[in-house]
Every structure is written in structure tokens, then in C-alpha cells.
Write a protein that binds this DNA or RNA. Structure first.
Lengths: 105, 105
DNA sequence: GTATCGTACAACCAAATGGTTGTAGATCAG
DNA sequence: CTGATCTACAACCATTTGGTTGTACGATAC
């Protein structure tokens, strides 16, 4: 993943409406207008949020009739979690290193 | 954590320079100017990045003489990872639910 | 065929972001 | 004391973001 990909990923999570959309489409299927009905904003605004999530690989869209079905994409989610796991690993290694130094001293 | 807190947290991660800073200050201590020397941008720009990370609780600053020492803050990092874990849990539950339905059918 | 629904996209706007330079206050070195 | 260093912050700028309204077009219903 490029820096830009990671930027997009975390940027997509940095909005409460988008996090809620991810949550909902993970549990069930929604059309874009089905999602739009849930929030106190215009259809176009929600459509933009979905587009942001799609670019970040956090959801996928599939045309069904005149509707566009939005579904959660596990890949993107897993990647984000794995990235944060890396940071935690770095932290753990540092903690171990400090423990070693204290043991020596 | 409020929505705004979570926004700040993921927003802070949505920039490659800031992710690099988090990585570095997790492994070792840096002054703000020590960090600034690492990147092809002004001191003020780096100082702003550190401020963003501090507001997101991803780093802490401590005054030492005329320097300000930046350190990683494990709390913030752990919170972010825990949040993404929640999403993964939701996903897993969905997967189990689907498996159940398939088992029934 | 016509009206309606669901979607996409352009144009616009205010506010936030990521960068700059410049100024000013502390702290340290000589 | 003087000068250099480290930091903070204001002011400014271009771009992006998150929202709006309006338009257009394909699919569906009647």
C-alpha cells in the first residue's frame, strides 16, 4: 500500500457519518438512497461519503436494477487494523527493549 | 470517546509525515526541532503536525530546558486499534450469522 | 409513452488542512 | 550582557473537505 492509499484509508475513517455507514453496510445491504434516508443531510452528501469509502476500499458498490447496493469490504478494514497492529508491535518491542535495559542496570 | 475525539484520532493518522513521526517517537525521544530536521519542510510545519498528534493524544510533549521532548502515547494508539477491532468483530459476527443461515438452509 | 425513482455529477460555498514566512519569548553558551 | 537556539504563534495562501442545489440520465412503474 502506498502512502496515498493509507492516507485515503484513515481519512475515510475520520468522519462519524462515514464510520456509521461502514458499520451499517457491514451488517446489512443498503442502497445509496437507503443510506441517505438515515442521515440529516442531502442525498448528494451521502453519495459523496460513499464515494470516499469506495475510493478507500472500505465498501463496494454493485448495480442492481436502478439501485446501487453498498456493501462493506473486509479487505480494507483488515488492512487498516493490520497497520495499527504494526504500530502496537513497534511499541511492544520498545517496551521490551526498555525492560532489558532495566534488567541489565 | 466522543465522535470528535475519534475524528481527531483517525485524522491524525491520515498523513504520512504524521505517521512517520508517531513511528519515530515510539522508538526514541525527539525534540521538535530534532523531528523537523528529518523532513523536507519548515520547522513550523512539523511543529503543527506535532500539535495535531498531541490533540489526538497520540504523542505527549514535555519541556526539558529550552527543548520540548516528544514521546509516543500508547493510550491513543491502543484506542485507535481497539476501535478498528470493534469493526472487525462486527464483521465476524455477520460472517457467523451468514454461516448459520446457510446451515439452516 | 410519461412520470417517478435512484444515481451521478457539476457548480458553488464556507471551513479546515497543509504548507509558508515572520515575529517574539525563553533558555542556554560565551 | 549578547548572541544563538528552540519553540510558539499569527498571518497568509492554495487546496481539499463537507455540505448545498440543480441538472441529466438510466431503470421502473403505470
Amino acid at each position: 500500500m502506498s502512502d496515498a492509499d493509507v492516507d485515503r484509508l484513515f481519512q475515510a475513517f475520520a468522519d462519524a457519518t462515514r464510520r456509521d455507514i461502514v458499520r451499517r453496510v457491514t451488517v446489512a445491504e443498503y442502497s445509496v438512497s437507503g443510506l441517505a434516508a438515515l442521515y440529516a443531510m442531502s442525498f448528494a452528501a451521502v453519495q459523496k461519503h460513499v464515494a470516499v469509502l469506495e475510493r478507500a476500499s472500505l465498501v463496494t458498490k454493485e448495480k442492481r436494477g436502478r439501485e446501487q447496493i453498498v456493501r462493506g469490504n473486509h479487505e480494507g478494514l483488515a488492512k487498516a487494523r493490520r497497520l495499527l497492529d504494526e504500530y502496537e508491535t513497534i511499541w511492544r518491542q520498545r517496551a521490551e527493549r526498555i525492560a532489558d535495559i532495566l534488567a541489565e542496570g
